[in-house]
Design a protein around this nucleic acid. Structure first.
Lengths: 347, 347
DNA sequence: ATAATTTTCGCAAACGTTTTCGTGTTGAAA
DNA sequence: TTTCAACACGAAAACGTTTGCGAAAATTAT
């Protein structure tokens, strides 16, 4: 096992000092061409690469981004990571991923372990529990310690920092309008509990679209799925709830769903009770993932451009890290969404 | 901006030496109770946490695992990461994720940047290009430098290291047998090119099941999807190819697909040509992801227990890291698979 | 040959820890 | 009063870098 070679070893081998080796490798004018040649040749031969940890300690920069997300087995979040990762690579950064699993405590723990020198800044989307508690002390803590933070998707107005979001209200309004345009008379929405910021705003968008058309909003047509139903192994609970909802409102002919899973579930349950998609029931979801794309019929959906979100978040963070003295004002980038029309809507 | 407090600052503030502070915080017997109290109180007040980078340098251990995978927007891989991440957290490790994007060069670059001190070991699944080229010098390089490696899923016999895999041949054979049991007369397989190790073995399993039943293997019933068709934006190419395949073999009444996407595509194309699922065409896929679960009809599939794979890979790696002197023999863990029966098969 | 440069290199400090070893102080035993 | 052990703490080295500065060596100018 031939361990990585260090400056010290090269120095000893060539009978010069460590500083000479270091300077020779960085092509310093202080060193004679002779020694430079010798050192560089030796270093190449032994495939010398500077130790990242030592560099991090010296420069007080780790060139690493900390990313904390609620889930990873999830089209939207994994696509965001893809975007982050690519930008990071491009700019010479690594990415450490931490999962909160929608838990406040995990989020805090993850942050704390990373905040002790391991990373140069955070990119986060908040856990549902954090949003529910409205406890953001770990975020302010991090910022006050000089670790910049970029929030995406599930952000909060309580914290001043860079943010990358979509205009959830608008996207939702547009989607609802689309359903209206396509002839829906009674539109229901399947959304999250209100503490989930994006869910709440999507619900608001739905409301405003209806009101703008002079329609009344029937609160019974708003189905809020409980957080705890949102697990892979709780699928039946979700299905039952949606089925019940559809059965008790047979007049519904349009559904807006705030994510893919809700959309595909609505489709399945609608069909089960004999509705044809899209003739009897039209559906629009959020997130342009595999479910929307590969379902039969395929599902019309609001694409959030997750990869772009990731890229922009990484850019913002890296800029902030590399210009920490500049005190630039915080930005909130709003990434445009687009409605991808597929087979679950009529027009 | 109150930067993190260091031992040195505490020492200056309390007018003792750095070593005293360090010892006091670690509750050393060398230090008087008085000073310990004083130091500990002060540290707590200022929320002192040791700097990870400094510790890494000192201990020559980073407590970080490097994970390199071909893709992240992918049910199987993201679920493996979930498993790795959880085990890592449990054992006090962080996880750096690198994406090869199925490219050999990216794989090499990612490894090289991480191999310079940033991590204690690698968990990898090889890119298709690497498997095609059969060039594994970066892996041997890493191992010879004392960085342990655990391969999962897409492994290779050419490298000696710990591995976590499933028995692809057996799983595929079982799945094929299932189709036979369910009454299929003509079974086709949609698989990858042969250089993808798991694809090849699944094809072999398919073959052996047919031969064991005394049936001949019609090479025309083996559809190998080209690597380059395997992209989100190449969906039509994939669909055309599968459709053509099904159209030119209308006698096919059973399909084994080596992943979810191929399975759902087969289902879609089969339907398009008027086949009922499962009455006219039965389908079994690999990977128990969202597509298999939420399609209508839902798809019978071979679950690889991806999360377990991740957990075991992390365990193996951490054990290897923490007992590097022991020279334990390399293990290949075979994670059991199970066939999840759903609506795309008849029995 | 001597002085003045210029070239070439090494020392030391720094980043933040941990740990070994040495040393000064205290109190008790002789 | 002297001797010695126990106690409490600090200095220094180490992990692997980079870099400012001083100093020796080599070259040039006088």
């Amino acid at each position: 096992m031939r361990r990585k070679v260090t400056l010290k070893q090269i120095a000893r081998e060539l009978d010069v000092s460590v500083s000479t080796v270091s300077k020779a490798l960085r092509d310093s004018a202080e060193i004679s061409d002779d020694t430079k040649q010798k050192v560089q040749a030796f270093a190449k031969l032994y495939n010398y690469k500077p130790n990242n940890i030592a560099l991090s300690l010296k420069n007080r920069k780790t060139k690493t981004l900390g990313v904390i997300i609620p889930e990873i087995v999830h089209y939207f979040f994994s696509k965001v990571i893809l975007g982050i990762e690519q930008k990071a690579l491009e700019r010479g950064y690594n990415v450490i991923v931490g999962l909160s699993n929608e838990s406040f405590d995990n989020e805090v723990i993850n942050m704390e372990t990373l905040a002790n020198g391991s990373i140069d800044g955070f990119i986060m989307s908040l856990s549902k529990e954090t949003l529910l508690r409205q406890d953001f002390h770990h975020l302010t803590e991090s910022i006050s310690q000089g670790l910049p933070l970029v929030l995406f998707d599930r952000a909060t107005a309580s914290i001043e920092c860079d943010k990358v979001i979509i205009d959830d209200r608008k996207a939702s309004r547009k989607a609802t309008e689309k359903l209206l345009d396509c002839g829906c008379k009674t539109i229901g929405i399947i959304t999250t509990e209100d503490h989930v910021s994006v869910g709440k705003m999507r619900t608001e968008g739905y409301r405003s679209a209806l009101m703008a058309e002079g329609r009344s909003v029937d609160e019974d047509l708003i189905l809020r799925i409980k957080d705890k139903y949102d697990f892979e192994d709780r699928l039946e609970l979700l299905e039952e709830t949606v089925e019940e909802f559809l059965l008790s409102h047979p007049e519904i002919d349009g559904i807006l769903a705030v994510n893919e899973l809700y959309a595909v579930t609505a489709m399945k349950m609608g069909r089960k009770m004999g509705k044809r998609i899209p003739e009897d029931l039209q559906i629009i979801g959020f997130t342009d993932g595999v479910l929307s794309r590969h379902s039969t019929p395929s599902i019309t959906t609001v694409s959030q451009n997750a990869k772009t979100i990731g890229e922009k978040a990484a850019e913002l963070l890296i800029e902030r890290i590399e210009n920490e003295d500049e005190e630039a004002p915080y930005q909130t980038m709003v990434i445009p969404t687009n409605l991808i029309e597929r087979e679950s809507t009529m027009c």
